[in-house]
Every structure is written in structure tokens, then in C-alpha cells.
Design a protein around this nucleic acid. Structure first.
Length: 1043
RNA sequence: GGGCGAUUAGCUCAGUCGGUUAGAGCGCUUCUCUGAUAAGGAAGAGGUCCCAGGUUCGAAUCCUGGAUCGCCCA
């Protein structure tokens, strides 16, 4: 026996403490940097970090994202790729501004400008990194390896410059232009609101809804001059801006009159009663498309029809019109609604907007000029009534958006905006999407694909302060425009060298147009932060402006992998795709993992306002980062979202990490020198299972399926601990080097497989195992991914069959109420062919597990019970079709014994169904055993295990001997002896017990490490421990002393 | 209002191509085993597979409609 090489591993090791130790080691050995440098020159595998903003504390959902951002790069690094990972921070944008406004007590844009843009932006710049330290600390603590020392920051001049390059390049392709965008707008704050802000401000309000008559001047189809088109609106103030009306081409309309009225109104058929009241008379019914082109007299004449264009004040077809409410004819004011605007532009109408940014009518609306639109609603209704244009007024209760800051009702308003022309490249975007591997798959043609199908031009300008300035300079008359692509170009044009390209500094720079000489000043807008982040593949390297950065970009484009939460389909997933497809005509990423959201224990969304946020650090302090990560990886598919509870994390620790750690501690406890070893069948089995696990984990991780990969490792560790180690215990106690070598190989390989999942514990185990080896690595994260060894499929299957037999036997034991410690004479096993061979090959193991002296095989269950015959639906269903029930009945009625005999002899047999004979084979039926009285039989499928429950005196005495051993072992443990301590044992008591112990003396002594045994109870005085026990109701006194 | 997804045991989740009696872990009750383990083994209790139709010899699984929840959009 080789000398033990015990290295103390504490089975109760605190994992958080262990992780801190590993972190120190990573820092000391610079493991992250080493892991990349080892792969210098290797093929790159590229990950892009979607930048968070560090102006809020990181939460548990960030741990989720960062865990998934980490696992695949680690895996790919181990597989030999060079995976550089640059961190990044998203620095600009409205959320930052709002945060600062709150801090400074500013309420609107006027306040900001009074405070000063320079000072305000300086505050924004500081605010962005408020929680940088917390972010960095969490990132490191959870083992997310990313370069935090050289992150890209969207506020850096170099980054901004690359974004400018992108905008200039797009403008050179005629993809940057000015147009209008209808936005939710607060007239008091003078600002448009983001959809997120709008969503915060919905309130239920009661508005006046008016039904307005528009007399037809030129008929079309069934509609004739003098008919009244009925329109409905909840915003009377938009009526002076009426440009056209819209109808649904397929919908049914009528000409109808209210009871007792001569006047003919036109409206949707389904709304007649609701609008005109009971008893209305319908004159004619027709489709909407039949009166397209009819012209009408607008409700007001402040603005001439000709100002809108050719098709002003006519009936236009539109797909958004419904008969759900209103009249089925929709009043269209192009500047004041998204649908209206789309309809207007597609009909070739010009945008005329007589409402100023302050929400007041301009001089064109003479009667109401200078008044706020919402204050004019009442006057307009009065005027319509006086003009005979008003059919009726209703109160209308609906949910309407208000400014979340000041409570003012928002208006939808067409503002001049700069656009990136994505819609013209829709097909290109769709083609690029086809090249992307989405996880889960359904996003590709579902949520994301649909979004691309309906792509509209991207409004990229924002009338704000803290953002990348839009690099467009133009002359006062708007005729001359120049887009600047770099700071150098700006300097060349203007002579001004800007260190900080942000507002307000950039606003002061003017220069003459290179051709016309007109003085150009910058437009005031900054750009959408999503455009910033979409530029990240090249802007993070200052490409293409910096030649070295350009080289890096070319090396690192496109990404093989990105990962963010599902809400990024309209965010970063889109902005990345749009910017880079337009610039480079290819998708910037090849694979995406889309994460779901985390909900709390009560299945409610975590939010600051509800106060149900789970802070990550306390969880890590309690269970550790590995436990946190393992929960996210293996509890469910990440895109389904999580119902989060810290208890679930604790369960993972107990069932997996603790089990793994204890297996490792066991190995180190019995560790022997790695000498020439003989392999047993159990060794070969566990190594084959190991190979299977390597295969599966590799395959799953290649497919971005960490969940099933992790679960496969979990299943293997369970097999390793609860079968291999348990069955091999005697070999470990005996110092068998073969057992040690096998267990070591399993654990070492598991530590590699696990490295991307739980980087801390895997590293601790790996280093603990390899320490002192020649050429030992500093970390598992510098190791190569394991290569699957040979499989022995037959052996894996044999072992499964044998374990099944054990399971059935233990079940029979349980039913019989005879404890396993009591030996039985035999187990009778029903099995044939392959199964019998498998069980026979593991005879000793099964006898040991079941504690029986012999296994006896029988070919058929006839001796133990009777068969029941069942049809195999899966096999016969397609053959018998609708006669299947009859076939199943006919099979059940066959003589099971005869069929069993036929199958044993490899013959076929017949069954009479649907008027003729059908030939069946073994595959077509299953034989199920019915147990027989007298034996304890457990059956399942085609085999069964029966126990002979007769206990003779010989078996009884052996059972007693085992009870004695158990009692002594308990005593040893209670007396605080070490597992290797030798003892002398004294016992006295019931004669029969003592006789049995005497008979089994040698065996007992070996089991309990006794160098001597006496049966007189002598020497209690100097005993290390003593006890009285009762075995089968018979008394026995035990005393041990260390030898 | 539209799109996408989810709904299976008290809890967390599997469930393959449509196939016989729908599974696992946790928790609970009762046994059992123990020279690593906070572990292991066995039994029991626990199910309207969200609901309603349809297709099929056969539906947790496919189709249609609906409910509830989530996300995105309007």
C-alpha cells in the first residue's frame, strides 16, 4: 500500500471565503490576462459587451446578464480561441439628464439653460460614474472576466469621433436626412418624451368628444354633394389643422339619416345606431373604397386647402381605420398623430403645423392666435355648433398620457427630426437577421423579425444636452449643409481644436461652407444614445480614425456572441444591427442569447418602487458567487425568466456544490501516490460516463445551451458521488491506487467542464488536484477544454440494468420491512438475454447492495407470477389506425403464457382483428408481470426481482454480527476516534448474541479495526467508550479502548 | 388594440416524433443505510397538464377560440 498523502480539505469549507481566496490568487497570478495571452495568435472569438450605465446600483438581473456574458467566453478560451473582452459604459442620454435634473432641482429645459449647459453637462459626466466602484466590485466578485481597466466609454472624444464618422458616412450614402417625427410632447416642459416616460404618465381623464359634420362638395361613388361625412375626435383643437379624412377600404359604410331628419350622413354601417340614435334610416350600404376621392368642405378655413396639396380635404384609404369607436371616418391632422402623419406623407400632403413649441397657435389661426391649444377646445366646440357643423358632443373617458414631471396633458406633435434611412434597407436588415443564431430561436422570425418587417426610418436626433452632438452644420437659410466626420476635419474647416466635443463647446464652432462660403453653424440636436451603442463595434477602438484601432476592429468584427435581456430587441440588438448593416452590409453579431426578467418570490416584477429588489451582495456573502451563477445557469432556460428566491440558491449549494466538494475532500483524505493502477469495471464505467458527459457538455455549450450542459454535469457528479465513490469505498480504505487515479481523473475533468460555470470552486479543485504535478498550471482557466475519452456504451447500459435490478430489490426490501442489514438467502431475478448477462456480470455488486447471499435467474416469470399482455400502441397505432382499440382488446385477450413462450423462442404469433389474422412479433407487445403471493416481488417492464424472505438461524446470526459492527462503529464515532485508530473490543450480554459475535469474530474485528476481542466485558475502567445496546430485543454491553 | 412568449404536484422545473399508468428535485409523513457527505436508498401523500372546442384509433404535446401573467409596440 502506498503512503497516504493526506491534504486537509475541510468538508464544511465556506464557499464565499474560498471564493475570496481564489480572487486573490487570480489577482496575484494575473490569471485573466494570462488566459488571453496564452491564446495570442489563435483564432479570435469575439464577444461584445453591451454597455450598462453606472448611474444606478447593479442588481440581481445584472448578475444574471454578467454570468451569461462570462460563461461562453470562458468556454471558448478553453477551447483554444483568443477571446478579448473589452468592458464598456453607456454614458449619454436622457436618463442621466433626468437624474441630474432631480439632484439640482431643475424642472425643464429653460431651467437647464439658465443653470448653464456647460455646468449641467459636467454634472452629467460625473453622475454617469456614480456607482462605478460598486459595478466594478460586483463584476469582479461574481467572476465576470472583462477588461475593466480599458473600457470604452461613449462620452470619450475618441468614441464620439467614431460616431461622427458613422453619421458622415451615412450622410454620404444619403441615409441621413431631415424630416418630421410625431412625438409625444409636453408643451410646458418644451420637450418630447421617450416612450418609457410616456408609459409612466397615463391617467384616466374625461375629454369632450365631438362628432363633426363635413359637407361633401364633390361626390364619389354613392356619396353625393351635400351628404355629410361624419368624423369624431377627442381633440377639437386639431380640427383647424384638418387635412383629410380616412376610411377603411374594406369596411361597410352607409348613407343614413337620423329619425325624423332629412340630412344624409355617411358613416360606418356598424355605428349607425350608436351615432345617429335609434330609428335611423339607412338609405344605402357600400364599401369604403367606393367613395375614395370625394371632397368636402373643411371645418375651418384658417389655412388654405392648397397649403396641404392636391389631395387635401378628400377621402383617403387607410389601414388603421376601424369601426370600434367614432364614426369609421377618421379626421386627419397630419402634424398631430402618428397615423395621420404616415397617411399624409404617403398621400403626398405637406406638413403644416400652426402650433408652436409652446403649444400656442401661431398667427395663421387668426381667431385663436397666441392661445394654448388645450384652452381653445371649448371655443372650437361653440364655433362648430354656431356653424351648424356639430352633430353632438359626448363625454369620453379614456386613458391619456400626461407629462410624468409636470402633469400637463401631452400632445402628439410633428417635430422636425433627423433620420437615418433604415426603411429603404429593410431587406438588407432582414437578410442580415437570417445569418444570426437567436437563442431562443423564436425571436428571430418572431419579435425581432416582425420588428424589422415593419421597419420605419430611425429618428436619431434629440433636442437635449448630454449626448453625442449631431455633427451637422448648416447655413442660416438651410440651403447649405455640411456633415463633419472627425475632429480633425472640424479643425481644418474652422481652425478650432476641440478637446471636448460635447455641448456647449461644439455649438460655438462655425465655419464657412467649403463651396458656397455661407457661414455654417451646428444644428442644436444631440443624437439618440442607441445610436451611440450601435456604433460600439468600431467606436470602442476609435476606428477607422485611429489606424491601430481600425486594425483591431477588423480583427474583432463581427462578434460571435452577444447577450442581453429581451427588451433589447428594440434597443441594442436593433441599433447594432441597423448601424453596422447600413455601414458594412453584414450583421455585426452571429449569436445572441436573450435573457428573460427576474421576478421575486411572489412572481412579481422586481422594481425599485415596490422595494422587492434582491441586492446581489448579501446573496453572495451567504452562498457565494458560484452558487448564484449555478442557479442562473441550471435552474431554467434563461430566456423564460426567473422566479427568484435565495432558498433556491441554497438548494443548489447543498445538492451540487457541497456534494462535489465533499467528493473532492474524500479523495484528498484517502489520496495515495499515483502509481501503476489496475482498472476495475466500475472504473471503466465511470470513465465512460465521464466521456459521455464531456461530449454532451461540449455539444450543449456549442449550442449556447448552458442549462442542459450544467444539468449534465450535475447528473454526472451525482453518479460519481452516489454510485462510483459509494461502491468503491473499500478500495479507497485499502489504498487502491486505481480507485484514486480514476476519481482524480473524474474530478479533474469535472473541474474543467465546470470552469465556465462556477469559476471559483472549479479552480480550487483543479489546483488542489494538480498542485505539485510537473508543469502544473496556475489555474483551471488556463487549461484546455477536455477531450472526450472512449465510450463503452455496452457497459453503460449494463450498469444501468444492474442499478435497476438493485433499485427493484431495494424496493422489495422496503415492502418486506426486512432491513437491509439482515442478510437474505437469495434474490430471484427474472431476466433474459442481454439483461441477464448484464446482471450476472455485476453479481457481486448486486448481492452486496441487496445483502443477499445468492442471485438466482429464471427465464420466465411463471414461477413468480403471471403475465399480463399489453399492446404497444406506438408500434401498432400506425398499422391498425382506427382499429387500434379492437386490436388492443384482442391482444389483451390472448393467452399471455403462450405469447411469452413464443417470444422467448423468437417466434411470431397471430391476432384476429377486423376480419383477418395479423402477425405480431416481440416488438408489438409488452409483457408485464403480475406478482404471485408468497414472494416479495417488484416488477418493472420486462424484468422483476423477488426476495426469498426465509431467515434461517445462520442468516440470523450473520445479521446479528452486522448489528454488532454497526453498534461498535457508532461507539467509535461517539467516542471521537479517528477512522484509522485501532481498538480492542470487549462485549458481553445475551448468550445467543455473544455466540454469533464469536462465530463472526474475525470479520467483526476486521470491520471495526479491532486488534483483540474479548467476551467478558472486562476493563470498562480504562475504556475510550462503552454502551448498552439492544439487538432484536436482546441486551449487549460494548466497551472499546484504543490499542 | 397589435405582436411575441409563458401557464404541468404545495414550491422549482423536465417531458423526445402525438402512444400504454405524466416524471424529477425540494418540502411533508414513515422507514432505512452510513469509516467522506448538510449526503444516500425505499415507501406514502400530493395532478382538471389554465379553460372550451376541434383534428386523431390515441392529445400535456397539433389546430382554433378564450383566460391569466410577462415583455415589446400602439
Amino acid at each position: 500500500m502506498a503512503a497516504p498523502m493526506s491534504q486537509a480539505v475541510d468538508p464544511a469549507q465556506s464557499f464565499p471565503a474560498l471564493e475570496e481566496e481564489i480572487l486573490r490568487r487570480w489577482r496575484d497570478r494575473d490569471v485573466f490576462r494570462q488566459s488571453i495571452e496564452r491564446r495570442a495568435g489563435a483564432e479570435p472569438w469575439v464577444f461584445y459587451e453591451g454597455p450598462p450605465t453606472a448611474n444606478g446600483m447593479p442588481g440581481s438581473h445584472h448578475v444574471l446578464a454578467r454570468a451569461f456574458k462570462d460563461i461562453y467566453p470562458r468556454f471558448r478560451t478553453m477551447r483554444g480561441y483568443r477571446v478579448e473582452r473589452k468592458g464598456g459604459w453607456d454614458c449619454h442620454g436622457l436618463p442621466v439628464e433626468i437624474q441630474v435634473e432631480k439632484e439640482l432641482g431643475l424642472h425643464n429645459k429653460n431651467d437647464i439653460e439658465a443653470y448653464g449647459i456647460e455646468a449641467f453637462n459636467q454634472k452629467c459626466r460625473e453622475s454617469v460614474f456614480t456607482f462605478l466602484e460598486e459595478w466594478d466590485r460586483l463584476t469582479e466578485r461574481i467572476g465576470f472576466w472583462v477588461d475593466l481597466e480599458h473600457p470604452y466609454r461613449t462620452l470619450d472624444a475618441s468614441y464620439v469621433e467614431s460616431v461622427w464618422w458613422a453619421l458622415k458616412t451615412l450622410s454620404e450614402k444619403d441615409l441621413l436626412f431631415e424630416g418630421h417625427k410625431v412625438v409625444p410632447y409636453c408643451t410646458r416642459c418644451g420637450t418630447a418624451l421617450s416612450s418609457h416616460e410616456v408609459a409612466q404618465g397615463y391617467k384616466d381623464v374625461v375629454d369632450q368628444s365631438v362628432y363633426v359634420k363635413l359637407p361633401v362638395t364633390t361626390g364619389a361613388g354613392p356619396v353625393v354633394a351635400g351628404d355629410q361625412l361624419l368624423v369624431w375626435t377627442t381633440t377639437p383643437w386639431t380640427l383647424p389643422s384638418n387635412a383629410a379624412v380616412a376610411v377603411a377600404p374594406e369596411l361597410e359604410y352607409v348613407r343614413a339619416s337620423a329619425a325624423g331628419s332629412e340630412e344624409v350622413c355617411v358613416l360606418a354601417a356598424g355605428l349607425v345606431e350608436r351615432v345617429l340614435g335609434e330609428g335611423a334610416v339607412v338609405h344605402e350600404t357600400f364599401a369604403g373604397e367606393t367613395f375614395e376621392g370625394a371632397r368636402y368642405d373643411p371645418p375651418f378655413h384658417f389655412i388654405a386647402s392648397s397649403a396641404w396639396g392636391e389631395r387635401a380635404h378628400s377621402v383617403l384609404p387607410a389601414d388603421f381605420v376601424t369601426a370600434d369607436d367614432g364614426t369609421g371616418i377618421v379626421h386627419t391632422a397630419i402634424a398631430f398623430g402618428e397615423d395621420d402623419y404616415r397617411l399624409g406623407t404617403s398621400a403626398g400632403l405637406t406638413v403644416v403645423n400652426p402650433v408652436g413649441l409652446d403649444g400656442r397657435y401661431d398667427e395663421r389661426i387668426t381667431d385663436y392666435a397666441g392661445r394654448h391649444v388645450k384652452d381653445v377646445d371649448g371655443d372650437i366646440v361653440d364655433r362648430l355648433r354656431a356653424d351648424g357643423r356639430l352633430l353632438k358632443v359626448d363625454a369620453y373617458e379614456h386613458s391619456y398620457p400626461h407629462c410624468w414631471r409636470c402633469g400637463t396633458p401631452l400632445i402628439y406633435y410633428a417635430k422636425p427630426s433627423w433620420f437615418v434611412g433604415t426603411s429603404g434597407h429593410r431587406q438588407q436588415l432582414l437578410d442580415a437577421n437570417e445569418t444570426i443564431g437567436w437563442h431562443p430561436e423564436h425571436i428571430k422570425h418572431g419579435r425581432f423579425g416582425n420588428w424589422l418587417e415593419n421597419n420605419i426610418d430611425w429618428a436619431v436626433s434629440r433636442e437635449r444636452y448630454w449626448g453625442t452632438p449631431l455633427p451637422v452644420w448648416r447655413s442660416e437659410d438651410g440651403a447649405d449643409i455640411h456633415v463633419v466626420g472627425s475632429l480633425a476635419e472640424l479643425e481644418e474647416l474652422s481652425g478650432v481644436k476641440l478637446d471636448d466635443p460635447h455641448r456647449p463647446f461644439v455649438d460655438d464652432v462655425t465655419f464657412p461652407h467649403p463651396v458656397t462660403g455661407a457661414t455654417l453653424t451646428r444644428v442644436p440636436e444631440v443624437i439618440d444614445v442607441w445610436f451611440d451603442s450601435g456604433c460600439m463595434p468600431f467606436a470602442q477602438h476609435h476606428a477607422p480614425i485611429d489606424p491601430a484601432g481600425q486594425a483591431t476592429f477588423e480583427d474583432q468584427f463581427p462578434a460571435q456572441y452577444i447577450c442581453e435581456a429581451i427588451d433589447q430587441t428594440r434597443g441594442w440588438f436593433y441599433s447594432l444591427l441597423a448601424v453596422n448593416t447600413l455601414l458594412f452590409d453584414r450583421a455585426p453579431y452571429e449569436n445572441v442569447v436573450c435573457l428573460g426578467h427576474i421576478r421575486d418570490e411572489n412572481d412579481e416584477k422586481m422594481s425599485k418602487s415596490k422595494g422587492n429588489i434582491v441586492e446581489p451582495m448579501p446573496v453572495i456573502d451567504q452562498y457565494g458567487a458560484d452558487a448564484f451563477r449555478w442557479y442562473f445557469f441550471t435552474s431554467k432556460q434563461p430566456w423564460d425568466g426567473y422566479r427568484f428566491s435565495t432558498d433556491a440558491i441554497g438548494e443548489g449549494v447543498r445538492l451540487f456544490l457541497r456534494q462535489l466538494w465533499n467528493t473532492y475532500a474524500f479523495l484528498q483524505l484517502y489520496r495515495v501516490e499515483d502509481v501503476e493502477a489496475t482498472e476495475t469495471e466500475l472504473d471503466r464505467w465511470v470513465l465512460s460516463r465521464l466521456a459521455a458527459t464531456v461530449e454532451e457538455v461540449t455539444e450543449r455549450l456549442d449550442a449556447f445551451d448552458a442549462t442542459f450542459a450544467g444539468r449534465a454535469i450535475g447528473a454526472f457528479v451525482d453518479d460519481l458521488s452516489n454510485w462510483y465513490v459509494r461502491r468503491s469505498r473499500p478500495r479507497f480504505f485499502a489504498g487502491d491506487p486505481g480507485a484514486f487515479a480514476t476519481l482524480r481523473e473524474c474530478l479533474e475533468t469535472v473541474s474543467r467542464l465546470l470552469a465556465p460555470f462556477t469559476p471559483f470552486i472549479s479552480d480550487a479543485i483543479f489546483c488542489g488536484l494538480t498542485e505539485g504535478d510537473a508543469g502544473a498550471l496556475d489555474s483551471v482557466h488556463l487549461a484546455d477544454w477536455p477531450v472526450a475519452g472512449p465510450r463503452d456504451l455496452a457497459l453503460e447500459e449494463d450498469m444501468a440494468i444492474a442499478r435497476d435490478a438493485v433499485r427493484l430489490g431495494l424496493k422489495a426490501r422496503g415492502m418486506s420491512k426486512i432491513k437491509v442489514r439482515q442478510p437474505l438467502a437469495e434474490a430471484v431475478i427474472v431476466a433474459t438475454g442481454r439483461e441477464r448477462e448484464a446482471i450476472g456480470a455485476h453479481d457481486a455488486m448486486i448481492r452486496d447492495e441487496l445483502n443477499v447471499r445468492a442471485l438466482r435467474f429464471i427465464d420466465s416469470a411463471d414461477e413468480l407470477g403471471s403475465y399480463e399482455l399489453k399492446a404497444n400502441y406506438r408500434a401498432l397505432g400506425p398499422r391498425f389506425g382506427k382499429h387500434m382499440p379492437a386490436a388492443a382488446a384482442a391482444i389483451a385477450a390472448l393467452d399471455a403464457g403462450h405469447v411469452a413462450a413464443a417470444i422467448r423462442e423468437g417466434r411470431t404469433f397471430g391476432v384476429f382483428v377486423d376480419g383477418r389474422e395479423h402477425e405480431l412479433g416481440a416488438e408489438d407487445v409488452s409483457l408485464v408481470m403480475q406478482p404471485l403471493e408468497g414472494y416479495e416481488v417488484e416488477r418493472e417492464g420486462n424484468h422483476a426481482v423477488a426476495l426469498d424472505l426465509t431467515i434461517d438461524e445462520d442468516l440470523r446470526r450473520e445479521g446479528w454480527a452486522r448489528e454488532v459492527v454497526r453498534a461498535v462503529q457508532n461507539l467509535r464515532k461517539d467516542s471521537g476516534l479517528n477512522v484509522g485508530d485501532r481498538i480492542t473490543l470487549a462485549l458481553e450480554g445475551d448468550e445467543a448474541l455473544v455466540a454469533a459475535a464469536t462465530e463472526w469474530q474475525a470479520w467483526i474485528a476486521g470491520e471495526v479495526l479491532a486488534t483483540a476481542m474479548s467476551f467478558d466485558g472486562a476493563g470498562d475502567g480504562a475504556a475510550a467508550g462503552s454502551t448498552d445496546v439492544s439487538i432484536d430485543g436482546l441486551p449487549l454491553h460494548l466497551a472499546i479502548r484504543t490499542a
